[in-house]
Design a protein around this nucleic acid. Structure first.
Lengths: 174, 174
DNA sequence: TGCTATCGTTCTGTTAACAGAACGGTGGTG
DNA sequence: CACCACCGTTCTGTTAACAGAACGATAGCA
């Protein structure tokens, strides 16, 4: 978790001391959190993410592992639906085209565009979506992501046929 | 937060002592958490939600306030997109038809069905959706939710024209 | 070269989150 | 009634999360 906090702070270009000032959390505390020398209380994490203008989830879960440099994704939720598993991501797409290698068989994806314009879909059958539009396609074929014009934001719903993924941990090893 | 934990535990029909056994968290601890006599550490909340087979978010955020008895919704994420505000909910619909009074003007909703079959849309223009299908409609008109057959599960994306809603808090009053 | 500012880490004392025991309350059974 | 099993709350001692000070390191500037 500490690495996520450090990365988040780095992205914002904010020093540890300044984050301490903004959030009201002692800077020794933040330092030890970033170095995984401590677990954190919920209110502490909330104060930090608020000061960094980030959702709490950014610290709690891992980014989508399969996607590449032009997709930054944050897991919003994951739960079982019968024998299946559903994951919801909030993702930001940059202009660079992004090939996504096929996922496990049976995976279906639903993309809903929140901002911008996106070209997405299985290779050879891409479609262009404007903000507000949705597209559903099979994720077990190769497919593309690409923002048209400026950067775009989408909500990505992944539907896995069985819960092969292991349950996430609070990674509080200490 | 304590009330959410207590409600969650009640829904599962599990006693405080048994939750303590399952989660490895002392039952005095759980009792005081439920009565808001304490703040919690992240690893504690994670152990509890895991034992209750619920997502962490179920404890952190409030349920959708506008909807009624036949819709149980959990906020998965909320973030600003330019001047707008986007919210993503995971919702469970029971068979009873649910009228939703119009939201503020400009609100758009996107429903993606995850499980079951759902009749949804603005009054007079409902459509039936199977698992995997999506529908987008204006939320500032009256509209209906209704599971067909068994209970259904959907992901609900709300798109507000401006961020009127206040920022959530970790409600750690103490 | 000093002086100062800011960085991130480590140290110190306080506070509170925690486990587990002790407690009172309630319902079932002989 | 006594006895028992379990419930949820309150109490007690330990541990660690926290604020803030002290520290060394690095950089800018006269």
């Amino acid at each position: 978790m500490g690495s996520k906090l450090r990365r988040l702070r780095g992205e914002r270009g904010v020093s540890l001391s300044e984050l301490s000032r903004r959030s009201g959390i002692g800077k020794g505390t933040i330092s030890e959190l970033e170095n995984d020398r401590r677990g954190a209380r919920l209110d502490t994490l909330f104060a930090l993410t608020t000061a960094l203008d980030a959702p709490l989830g950014a610290l709690l879960v891992d980014a989508l592992p399969v996607e590449g440099a032009s997709v930054a994704a944050v897991l919003l939720g994951r739960w079982p639906v019968g024998p299946h598993l559903v994951e919801v991501y909030r993702a930001t797409l940059t202009g660079t085209p992004q090939d996504s290698s096929p996922h496990a068989t049976g995976v279906e994806e639903t993309v809903t565009v929140v901002r911008g314009r996106v070209r997405v879909g299985p290779s050879g059958a891409e479609r262009d979506l404007d903000a507000g539009e949705s597209l559903r396609y099979r994720g077990d074929l190769g497919h593309h992501f690409r923002a048209l014009g400026g950067p775009a934001e989408v909500v990505l719903l992944m539907h896995y046929p069985q819960s092969v993924t292991e349950e996430g941990s609070a990674d509080h090893d200490h």
